[in-house]
Computed example of a mutant assay.
Amino acid sequence: MAVRDARVHRPWRRLVLGLFALLAIGPARAETLVIAGDIWCPINCAPESAKPGIFVELARDIFAEAGIQVEYRVINWARAISDARTGKLNAVIGAGIQDAPDFLYTPTAPGISRMCFYVAQGAPWRYQGLGSLAQVRLGTINSYSYGQEIDAYVRMHRAKGDRVQVVSGEQALEMNVEKVRFGRLDATVENSWVMENLLARTRQQDRLQSAGCRAPDVPIYLAFSPAIEASARYNALFEAGLQRYRASGRLDALMRSYGVTTP
């Protein structure tokens, strides 16, 4: 009888031991996708904000549908590109293809960068093509791409600093705005969504004005690291989500919630 009882209870003992083993290991860790960039609101805004940015919300919602958590970090743009290139991050937010040609990009661009030039209120200068930049001291941001022609112009003139000044850091745009306001720069160039958002938040709409925009507009993306094997899968998941959100009108609604419209 004792032997039979032992055989009957042995499966229960194995089950209990298995449960203890699972508890010791702990719960399975959720898959996490780390995305980063410097603040470029409304594309990506303060992480603790109720409105963390258009691209951040898109990434969180689309990847959540696949059971993947998104961790959003704010770091210097040049470092974000470098860290993603070496696989320390999964993706950078708001990159143009010129920013990192070796990264993975979705066929569908979730947004555009319309680069416009901004001068102090009342200043007479207007952007009329690349040749007109010779008339101004232009403020730019390190490692940003403004399109092939302007990028070439920046590379040619940044060393001397008399025609192009380059700044870095999380407050780079604010620095360029201040320089224009106080006459240390004649103009700065920035994405129109970003500049309008900044001027509205800081109540400086009457301090700077648009002096014309570069054409054509440049598509911007959530650009995935070339050093991470899973990037191809993430890229495909994000593309499928963008297609669904565009077809359902959800992408338009998200854009409108940030005060912009889908191009």
Rank of each mutant, 00 (worst) to 15 (best):
Y153Q: 03
A59F: 08
A84G: 11
F55C: 01
I93T: 14
G139H: 02
N176H: 03
L185E: 06
P42V: 08
I93H: 09
Q204R: 12
I39D: 05
I68D: 02
V34P: 01
V8R: 15
T140K: 00
P47I: 06
R114M: 05
G183Q: 03
N90I: 00
V119C: 01
G259C: 01
D61M: 03
S145G: 10
M1H: 14
W193E: 13
L130F: 01
V194E: 15
W193H: 15
V34K: 09
R214M: 14
R7M: 13
W125V: 04
A109L: 09
V34C: 00
N235H: 01
A187M: 04
P47D: 08
V167D: 12
Y144W: 09
M1R: 14
G129M: 05
R73N: 09
P124A: 06
A223I: 07
K160E: 14
T202Y: 03
V92D: 11
Q209S: 13
F103A: 13
G139Q: 05
S248W: 05
R214W: 11
P216R: 10
A28L: 12
E239C: 07
E170S: 14
Q121Y: 00
P52F: 04
V8Y: 12
Y105H: 09
M175F: 01
G111A: 15
V177F: 08
R244V: 15
P107I: 11
S210R: 14
A6M: 13
G139L: 04
A187L: 03
M156Y: 05
W125I: 05
A120F: 01
N90M: 04
A200S: 15
D5T: 10
K179H: 03
G122H: 02
E229G: 02
M255I: 01
G183L: 02
A211C: 07
T262S: 04
V8F: 14
F182T: 15
S82H: 09
Q205K: 13
K88W: 04
I35P: 04
I54L: 10
A30C: 05
R155E: 15
Y153K: 02
